[in-house]
């Protein structure tokens, strides 16, 4: 299981990579594995305001649909347009090419409510049990 060190994680298996005021958002390796072949990513609209833990996107495989919740609050500033034609990028590269969108983070302190890689790893071990 790939859990990059520099990211923040939610219990719903989203990740956020903070770059200054911006954050890249996507779903984790565990999440893509559990869903299987991703067939569609329903992204927010560019410019949408999102709140931490609010529904902000959906992700689908052939026989399942999952909601994606915002790891942080802020405004969506760009989308990963590639996912429309290539949803499989979420499977192949969940933390890089398969990101969902980029947001302007309004309150960086919210990251304290997220898990770091070590705690997320432990959290996953708990689920496996």
């Amino acid at each position: 299981m790939n859990i990059p060190k520099d990211l923040f994680y939610t219990k719903d298996h989203e990740w956020a990579r903070l770059e200054g005021k911006k954050a890249y958002v996507g779903i984790t390796d565990y999440a893509q594995g559990a869903l299987g072949d991703i067939t569609f990513a329903g992204l927010p609209k560019n410019g949408d305001a999102v709140k931490q833990s609010d529904l902000c996107a959906t992700v689908e495989s052939v026989k399942a649909a999952s909601d994606v919740y915002a790891p942080l609050s802020g405004r969506v500033v760009s989308l990963n347009e590639k996912l429309a034609a290539h949803p499989e990028l979420v499977n192949k590269s969940p933390y890089e090419e398969g990101y969902f969108f980029v947001m302007d983070v309004s309150d960086e302190s919210e990251k304290t409510k997220l898990m770091d890689a070590a705690s997320y790893g432990k959290y996953l071990e708990g689920i496996a049990k």
């Binding site: 569609f40 052939v62 949803p87 499989e88």
Partner: peptide
């Protein structure tokens, strides 16, 4: 067996 992933993608 049919490729349902392809059908949906």
């Amino acid at each position: 067996r049919l490729d349902e992933t392809k059908a949906a993608r």
